Simulated assay, not measured.
Amino acid sequence: MVFKERTFYGEAPEGVAPPAQADLETRVANCLATVDGLDASDVSVVSKGNTILLSGTVATIEEAERAEEAARTIEGVAEIVNRIAVV
């Protein structure tokens, strides 16, 4: 058996997505999952730098606002782009 170093398009897999970016997404998503009065099962979280994009659907405008407020409480979040639709 020959050992071959893992790469992703010539770079180490760890270098593809900055750990801080993935960590920020995870922290925001975990926060949304625990907020009372918010069903975030159809909400997705994507980060680009310190900007968080919230998208998906919720049942009421209050839930969309609650999701944005909760995301703002996470350390490292500088801006929120809220594209959550109410269905």
Rank of each mutant, 00 (worst) to 15 (best):
E11F: 15
K4P: 14
V46M: 04
T26K: 11
T26N: 12
G15Y: 02
D23Q: 11
K4M: 14
A33Q: 05
P18K: 09
C31Q: 09
A20D: 05
A12P: 03
L24D: 06
L38N: 03
C31Y: 01
P18F: 06
F8Q: 14
G49I: 00
S47K: 06
P19L: 13
G37S: 10
A40F: 05
D42R: 08
V43I: 14
T34G: 02
C31S: 06
F3H: 13
D36W: 10
E5W: 00
V45G: 01
Q21N: 11
G37Q: 08
P18D: 12
A12I: 12
P19E: 11
A33E: 01
E11P: 00
P13D: 04
D42V: 07
L38C: 05
V43P: 07
L38G: 02
G37W: 11
G49T: 00
G37R: 10
G15M: 10
R27T: 02
E11N: 09
P13V: 09
F3K: 13
G10M: 11
Y9S: 12
V43Q: 09
R6E: 08
T26D: 08
E11K: 15
V45Q: 01
V16R: 14
T34E: 06
A22P: 00
V46Q: 02
T51W: 02
A22D: 10
A20M: 07
K4N: 14
A29S: 10
N50K: 11
P19H: 04
T26P: 15
E11I: 15
A29F: 01
V28R: 04
C31H: 02
V46Y: 04
T7Y: 00
N30A: 03
P19F: 04
N30M: 01
S47D: 06
A12D: 11
L24C: 13
C31R: 09
S44N: 10
P13G: 04
P13H: 03
P18I: 02
G10P: 06
Y9F: 14
N30H: 03
E25Y: 00
E25N: 06
